[in-house]
Amino acid sequence: MLPPIRQKVMRHLDIVGLIQPALHQQTHAPSPDMIDNAHFRAYTRSPHDVGGEPDIPITWEEKEEEVWEHNTFVTCEVLAWRGVWNAEERRRRQNVEVGQTQYLGLPYYGRWLLTAAKILVDKQFVTATELQDKVAEVRRRYE
């Protein structure tokens, strides 16, 4: 029996495998001759630019908002109000730099939230260690 943390790690690795986008070809750091210019563009595309992509009809839904979703929206706006980022930097980070897998895989405000955390570290307002400690400390409040 694996210790709980290792069980968690194994489950994480299983899920990562399951959420890889289907690319229909081997994609493990290919040699340059395998990437023509069309593939270069496809791999470097901005994942937010979805207009015109084929898709099938879905059920149109309304949705209740989670408390953390509301607070995330407000935090992102207030960070912009106080000049930590502008709206355009935010949209790039939330919608493009998260990459295709997170873009399609996480909730709308989940991307906003990760990006809000990242801007604090990227612009050196907090260190990565401070963020990690804070997350661990908040988690402990709920144990």
Binding site: W68, T75, L113, L120, E130, E137
Partner: peptide, 15 residues
């Protein structure tokens, strides 16, 4: 508690 909730509180408090 969800990881989203934890991270949201952490980011807000740090900022």
């Amino acid at each position: 508690v969800s990881e989203f909730e934890v991270l949201e509180i952490a980011v807000r408090e740090l900022a």
